[in-house]
Design a protein around this nucleic acid. Structure first.
Lengths: 335, 335
DNA sequence: CTTTTACCGCGAAACGTTTCGTTTTATTGG
DNA sequence: CCAATAAAACGAAACGTTTCGCGGTAAAAG
């Protein structure tokens, strides 16, 4: 059916191995090079990746495993990863595991069965042995957004600690003293970091850390909704709140709207992740924005490096900076 | 390295071809079946898809081509497609073309080079020949969300006409007589349908269709923003507006907020696509919700059918119903 | 002009399957 | 118990590449 290397050989009068050599960047006489290129052009030859893969045991395929495809933070990272990988001829198989640890393992197995050359993973907490499994197989791996303790691995993450620090600092500067935080699950690395930043800046400014103002959610909309209302019911409620991911930010906003709480008069607000969200809500929300493009591109580039068998600098831990968008959701408090 | 069919043959004392026969569902002596299964278990055998693919020229891979990975409407459809395909052993290669016709063609070529067994495509308008190209190659294809004229092809779409009809009808029932629409690009099938529904319901109720109340946008946030403001500046402004996709709904809301327009007092509002959006905005927005899960699953199932070489019912045109969520963004007008 | 050194091209084996035609084994009927 | 038939197992070729070692030719060195 399709034209093969054999057809090129016939067309040019050269041997199969010479064509193969050319295809893999080997040296070929100038004259023959032109001949081969012409043949490839006119016969519309494309290497059969399956045959090549069978010989070399490389699939030119990488797997990207994320918790959910319905989360724009994840998918836009994927989008940038895909762009970079495609340029090098790799195809990207995206799997999501719907935040389910069982599925995570299953999908990973699927990727193994498909013999992907490399993996980009945003791991669920507690599934550390999955990561170890990948490493044991020597499949190149780049972790995203979340780090695993006691495991050496390339990882791209965001400086969550200082992201929180800077956000909360803005609240302090504007006179807030009782600042609530809707934090993430205690077993998620990212969430721990974001909480640490909150605590550190309070301490740096000599403010008391009040445990009743720290609420742990599960990164879902519902818990944002519930926890915001809980915060407002504390005996001495906060004058500002900092919410640490996108979904919980949405949930909080819904709670605020449904209960006729006014921003920033009743409470000042800083949310997370999504720029559009910042503008759509009234008044415009202040937001911590993550550098999704950089995250994706960096992860892809490191993976490509490893796929080239370049182990330089291992493990590479990249820590990217967030951006803080200050809008109208913060009130100045007289102190 | 990995265990092959040869190892299984050695372990069981059977021949390679018998093992292969078993793997492909052929008949094997009960005794041997058990033996083989045990061997596969203990040696942890997995068929090498590359070798198999080389022989059969099937890759067990399907390509999904969508305009953007940063659009939750698209990605959640992808998510459901992926789930279904995975169960049958297919992996899904997702490509987005960032709404760029040039890229669309390039990515499609990429998928061809990767020899995907099938394709799910959400085509850009005007690129009809791309679709024809796929069909000419006899690669199974399912179109999503947008139809192409004069081409026979399986397609899953939403009953956009009646979606609009029902939405606008609710506005009419509540007494609105001047209803604006922010429609999509005139060359997009989906957009045409949505506009048709708007026009038809007005005519059915004997209302005049006023061209000054029909604005065509490009499905991006910015144009939602601009067109909403244009609508409000019409000499006799509408009392209600219907916005026909997610991004433009966001844009409109931003415009409304920034200009202190009140919903529903100044204007009644029906938006599109995203449930969370409906709740996050205050007052809660009325929304036309698309059945993303059904779209994805239906598309995947049809594709699987075609991959099984079952041409039954070709071309299958599936038209799914939307849901109309009425919330607080519509005011009753005394007439 | 001869010897050495590069360089380029070639043939053949191998990667792990499927498939097809043939041989062996098991089953049935006479 | 043997022949005929059905069922199962087998062997070998093929899919389209890469790779490795060898042979030949041209350029560089003596």
């Amino acid at each position: 059916m399709a034209t093969t290397i054999k057809d090129i050989a016939k067309y040019t009068g050269l041997s199969i191995s010479t064509i193969s050599k050319y295809l893999n960047g080997g040296n070929v006489l100038e004259h023959n090079r032109e001949l081969i290129e012409e043949a490839i052009q006119t016969l519309d030859f494309k290497v059969n990746e399956m045959a090549r893969g069978l010989r070399t045991s490389r699939t030119m395929t990488v797997g990207v495993l994320i918790p959910s495809l319905e989360n724009i933070f994840f998918t836009s990272i994927v989008s940038h990863i895909e762009s970079i990988l495609l340029k090098e001829g790799y195809s990207t198989i995206v799997c999501d595991f719907k935040e389910d640890p069982g599925l995570e393992e299953k999908k990973l197995q699927f990727l193994f069965d498909k013999m992907v050359d490399g993996i980009v993973l945003m791991p669920l907490p507690g599934n550390d042995n999955l990561v170890k499994k990948i490493i044991a197989r020597k499949t190149p791996l780049v972790l995203i957004d979340r780090m695993i303790n006691n495991v050496e691995c390339d990882v791209v993450l965001v400086d969550n600690l200082n992201a929180s620090y800077n956000a909360v600092e803005q609240l302090i500067i504007r006179g807030h003293r009782r600042i609530g935080i809707i934090a993430g699950p205690q077993n998620i690395y990212t969430a721990q970091e974001r909480l640490k930043g909150y605590i550190r800046v309070l301490e740096d400014y000599g403010l008391k850390v009040d445990p009743s103002l720290i609420k742990h959610g599960d990164y879902q909309i519902e818990s944002g909704y519930n926890l915001l209302l809980e915060l407002m019911k504390v005996e001495q409620p906060p004058t500002a709140v900092y919410v640490t991911n996108y979904e919980m930010t949405i949930g909080s906003i819904i709670a605020i709207n449904e209960n006729n709480i006014r921003i920033p008069d009743d409470i000042s607000f800083i949310g997370f992740d999504n720029q559009d969200l910042a503008r759509i809500v009234k008044p415009a929300l202040s937001i911590v924005v993550q550098p999704v493009q950089q995250i994706g591109e960096t992860a892809a580039k490191i993976l490509l490096k490893r796929l080239r068998k370049d182990q330089g600098g291992f493990p590479i831990v990249t820590r990217l900076k967030t951006e803080l968008l200050i809008r109208d959701s913060i009130k100045n408090v007289e102190s």
